[in-house]
Design a protein around this nucleic acid. Sequence first.
DNA 1: GCCGTTTTCGGCCCGACTGTTTTCAGTCG
Length: 578
Amino acid sequence: MTNVEIAAVLAKIADLLEILNENPFKVRSFRRAVETVSGLAEEATELVAEGRLVGLPGIGKSIAEVITELVRDGRTAHLDDLLEKVPESLLEMLRVPGFGPRKASVVYEQLGLTTLDELEAAARAGQLRQLPGFGAKTEQKILEGIELVRAGQDRWLLGEALPLAEEFVARLRAHPEVLAAEMGGSTRRRRETVGDLDLLATSNDPAAVCAWFAREGGLATVEMAGDTKVSGRTERGLQVDLRVVKPESFGALVNYFTGSKEHNIRLRERAQRMELTLNEYGLYRGIAEDKGDQVAGENEEGIYAALGLPLIPPELREDRGEIEAAEAGRLPHLLTDADMRCDLHMHTNASDGQLPLAEMVAAAREYGYSHIGITDHSASLYVANGLDRDRLWAEIQAIRELNAELGDFTVLAGIEADILSDGTLDIPEDLWPELDFVIASIHQGFSQDADRMTARVLKAITSDRMDVLGHPTGRLVLERPPYGLHLDDVLDAAREHDVAMEVSSSPHRLDLNDAHCRLAVERGVKLCINTDAHGPKELALLRYGVMTARRGWVEAPSVINTWPLPKLRQWLGQRRRA
DNA sequence: GCCGTTTTCGGCCCGACTGTTTTCAGTCG
């Protein structure tokens, strides 16, 4: 059973416990475990085998037993018992905004409703308004909510949401009454998908800013426009919430809305132990009703400082050990965009790219790199017009000629070689010494089982003819799960043979993902962050790979793109001299 | 169910909004 499947079961248990009105702290425990398992880079199967489950954040004896059962039998008695009391189909109702576990419990107990369809029918028939705690308005909101669920637009790619958020923030900052503006939520934490945009601003006249934003802030529809809050949707239906507060609370607001929720809870618990209270308006002396003077709140640094912590970068705020690290002064010095000296994976129209070599190189040069790598597809990828031996040799020579003209900019001659079904690399033997580097990727035979897929990749790595494993897990965000691969084994081999793992920066890929980046670096494996650009516009996407690596606690030295060219050449040369 | 710089038992974050309500439960972030 995969970690994703285990996390789904734990989430299901949490939902069912909530519907059954169980102890809320028990529910919270399961939710915490969902986060922990989702963030695991290692397979839970391995942790179970080695007895390392207990002790992970939020995983005690009971939940460890549930996970062990799942790994061993593919099912758990805990879930089975709950499903005897509540039908599973009831859970789909929880996706309806404003419709939570208590209401689900009521419609099930009193009307016997078990599915979204039945809920919709009952709402249309006016049957819900007679239930306790329900009214005509609730009924109407439920119908609207079901519509949204059916439309299916609840998660957006970071690559779609972030540019929109940046535009909104820029527009806010340009307004004369706005003193400062920032984005919050999972967009600011750079999660790979986001549900909505949170925009935060400060002004001495919040009402004026809200009124202006509702009118001409760029929303297609406005659902609510108050003196401190505006919410609506963009043309494509993405939910946007703006909140505006006075300056003394801005840092607290940004901190609060940046989350994650679990990180916030940890901060508030910490505040409480220090006899302070943290809320979205500030950090105050005293606790609960006795809270007094504001200690901090104008900016985030001040809040963290008052809690005895350095500022924690938003990308790390997931309660994955960042508070402990901050406390111990061991926060990572995260990789930045400015550290990136090159992009080592891009295509020209020799294979399936848009531009000829010289134009693609010119486009990449605009990004201020000192060097880049050109990596067209290898011969076996017919659909992408992969290069056969003669065309590859021609490209290598063209790159050499180009370098002679370029002066202080260098183009490395690479290839994106297919890892064939039997694990051999699709590279003409006599041209391997002529290539500066090799990215090897899987493009076909996705359906092989995990053992075969792993054996295939291990054979490629141990051939010592490749430098980087391209988009290692093959997943597409929101579209396609990763192919089965025992990543632990792959990482071990990669360290031994000094092969880097690619972080493919396309918002559709982000492969490796954040948790895998963290595991790879912890295992001593190097990363290579690339765009895999097929045209000039995609060259701009490198920052998404950097964001993913930052979420994986990655520091610049682990990323070969940050090395000066001589160091990179030396590393690549070791394999070739061996 | 988890967890420990007062704890192996007794705590467990904080506030706003909404709708249904004459004082509050449910939902959300």
